[in-house]
Nucleic acid binder design. Structure first.
Lengths: 192, 192
DNA sequence: AGCTAGTGAATGAACGTTCAATCAATTTTA
DNA sequence: TAAAATTGATTGAACGTTCATTCACTAGCT
């Protein structure tokens, strides 16, 4: 059924933007519904509760990120090139969709995020794991667990994007240096 | 007046722990008061509102972190040594006080955190700036802005600690590699 | 006695959720 | 083919709960 998916997506997008600006507790279900152009009660034909909506929203965003980053990856290229492309795509995705970045960050640091949730099947995590595994396999990366490598890299992307978002104005001075960040990360994880 | 400071601190610690477990919206003022052993109304003799309490809590934690890390720093030592010590102290502080880490993370990714707040006088940010500035000045670090360097480093610490917190169990396998993380970060930021 | 700090029941607003009523579209019937 | 019946999504007012905040009162100190 298309109408169902359409309206669900509308609710997701509405919730994403509201949560970016007002946070979880600052966005009433009624408001999410209004911005999506539906009545409050309608939300409950698509989700059983506000919490369930937020959990599904999390999966929705992770899938979007995965789709974006994975389709742009070309496993034929030398790993170093793949790494810098990966960095660029993830950074510009987050910069172009600030609500993605903001929601994901709020979510993972909130009580919604539990160890169980993290360990449940997670295509994005799996993709990341494989990506860094390959880097190790071809000898481009230090022989560490893919998880550890992912920590390093994703952590830096997140921090960078937050920095850019918060200091948009005074960023001019350091903007030139920003291209050096992926280089620094690469220097840290590359073999030798 | 000591009693004032004492009770304020009690409220802070109570709020920290509750927020770690239940998040901002999951911790009613009344609960914070109860766990601190005071009545709900008392909170309002120390803070004008819940929001103000949380903002002050943020400053409280930042000062604590600053105190811990700065007193343990020895500017006489070679910078590389200072860096690894800094990393250790910050990591183990966060690991020993999970509520610090959890609260800070929730706070910075929430709407409480505004650009204005970040730019207001911030001793912890200032200390970090000076720390990395010195690293650059003595030629130990790449000649980048201290802010950029701080992003890299703090981002990695945060990610690492979150990882350790969430995957406490299955961590055994990779625990040996964890000591390599500061080394990787160092390899990324050091000069040459 | 006067003063301050603390109390906790009361208040009112906001919120998540429910549900009887409505509406549009589709299917059945004649 | 046209009217009637059925279906299920949609609505939004209403409900009950929770929560931040207030305030009349008390306890304890000087």
């Amino acid at each position: 059924m298309e109408p169902i998916q359409d309206k669900k997506t509308l609710l997701f997008e509405s919730a994403l933007e509201l949560i970016r600006v007002h946070g979880f507790h600052g966005t009433p279900v009624s408001r999410v519904a209004r911005e999506a152009g539906v009545a409050a009660g309608t939300v409950y034909t698509y989700f059983n509760s506000k919490d369930e909506m937020i959990l599904e929203l999390y999966k929705y965003v992770k899938l979007k990120v995965l789709a974006e980053v994975s389709t742009k990856d070309n496993p034929e290229l030398p790993f170093q090139q793949r790494f810098f492309a990966f960095w660029d795509h993830l950074t510009s995705l987050y910069l172009s969709k600030p609500a993605f970045q903001s929601f994901m960050e709020q979510f993972v640091s909130s009580p919604y995020n539990t160890p169980e949730l993290q360990q449940s099947t997670d295509l994005w995590g799996a993709w990341l794991g494989k990506f860094f595994e390959q880097g190790v396999a071809v000898g481009a990366l230090k022989p560490l667990s893919p998880q550890i490598l992912a920590i390093m890299v994703i952590g830096s992307v997140i921090s960078l994007v937050r920095y850019l978002t918060y200091f948009e104005s005074k960023t001019q001075s350091v903007k030139g240096e920003l291209t050096q960040i992926p280089q620094m990360v690469w220097d840290g994880i590359k073999n030798h």
